[in-house]
């Protein structure tokens, strides 16, 4: 890979990031011209008060949430794919998002609490309980494949409890829970944004510190140990980092599928290399871009109807996975 190609990739993604960021502020049910958006953001604005409110209280937090959530989920997916030597691993596979779902289901259906804050706390608790279970098993089980299977099973157990709760719940509570389960970048208000930002930026920062051991893990655990990697500690750090990122994003935005699974593949195909030195930053950028794109696509053009996020992410993610699987013989990182 030449330096020039690298420069183009970083430049292109940065440009897309900026364009999609402002696109998210301009585009929506109400169209607000870019000139007004810029004035609202950067200097005193004396136009329509409603527009100012829409941009600052609704679109800005939604776009920043999409940016951070996309980067967080994508980098989690990448780290888990490398750790578990499985290109189809993702943040939802370890049962962490199922744990968050269960926490929310218990809070909404069983306890009847429905405030925004209790939902987030319940999701965080659920996700961290599952994360602790996985970390507990990771001390006992030395094989990563076995750990992956345990994670999937824990996820099924959580889903099973959710089914029981739903079965006995009233229709409106089930509806409320189902709505949460569709994922949403717009639920984070400007005042809650610092919480999401703090956790996800901390997680993203930690992921950047794991680049060196992640590369060694491409060789497998024995080679990595021989190179002096403390494999157990590296695994623990990767699990904590991805666990916190997934838990926080799921708590604030609901379960979001496919971004963690598909974006690392997009980044690998774009770069033509699995070297995390560039793969990890490119995954972060691509994740942020794709999530912001999904966020924009939830607003149907013309009518202003808003679609659930869970209807959009598979439309972008599933074709990527199908493409990768069909072409796996010609894709270097599969061989």
């Amino acid at each position: 890979m030449t330096r020039q190609k690298l420069r183009w990739i970083y430049a292109g993604l940065s440009l897309a990031l900026v364009a999609l960021f402002f696109g998210g502020l301009v585009y929506g049910a109400v169209r607000i011209p870019l000139k007004d958006v810029l004035q609202i953001l950067f200097r005193s604005y004396e136009g329509k008060e409603a527009w100012q409110h829409i941009v600052l209280e609704s679109r800005l937090p939604q776009t920043v949430t999409a940016l951070l959530a996309g980067a967080s989920l994508a980098v989690s997916g990448l780290m888990l794919q490398t750790l578990f030597k499985n290109p189809l691993a993702g943040p939802s596979i370890l049962g962490i998002s199922d744990g968050a779902n269960l926490g929310v289901a218990i809070a909404m259906i069983y306890l009847g609490a429905a405030s925004y804050l209790t939902t987030i706390v319940a999701a965080l608790i659920g996700a961290f309980v599952v994360l602790l279970i996985i970390l507990g098993f990771s001390r006992k089980v030395s094989s990563n494949v076995m750990l992956l299977i345990i994670g999937i099973m824990v996820g099924y157990l959580a889903s099973s409890v959710i089914s029981i709760l739903n079965y006995h719940a009233s229709a409106d509570k089930v509806h409320q829970y189902v709505m949460w389960g569709m994922g949403d970048f717009s639920g984070v208000s400007l005042s809650k944004l610092p919480w999401l930002s703090g956790f996800s930026l901390a997680g993203i920062f930690c992921s950047l510190l794991l680049i060196k051991p992640l590369n060694a893990l491409l060789l497998g655990e024995s080679y990595a140990t021989n190179l002096g990697v403390n494999v157990r500690r590296a695994r623990l750090l990767i699990l904590i980092c991805t666990g916190v990122l997934t838990a926080v994003v799921t708590a604030f935005c609901g379960p979001i599928s496919f971004i963690g699974l598909a974006v690392p593949h997009v980044a690998r195909l774009l770069l033509g290399s699995s070297n995390h030195k560039h793969l990890l930053p490119v995954t972060l950028l691509a994740g942020a871009c794709i999530a912001m794109l999904c966020s924009i696509l939830t607003v149907l053009p013309g009518s202003g109807t808003v679609l659930p996020l869970s209807a959009i992410t598979p439309i972008i993610g599933a074709p990527v996975i199908i493409y990768v699987i069909v072409n796996r013989k010609n894709i270097h990182y599969f061989n």
């Binding site: 060789l219 024995s222 290399s273």
Partner: peptide, 21 residues
Amino acid sequence: GELATHVGVVLTERTQTGGIS
């Protein structure tokens, strides 16, 4: 990690290195 500069190994393990140069 100290041993890493004394003994190097080449194993039969499958790796995920197909995608790097």
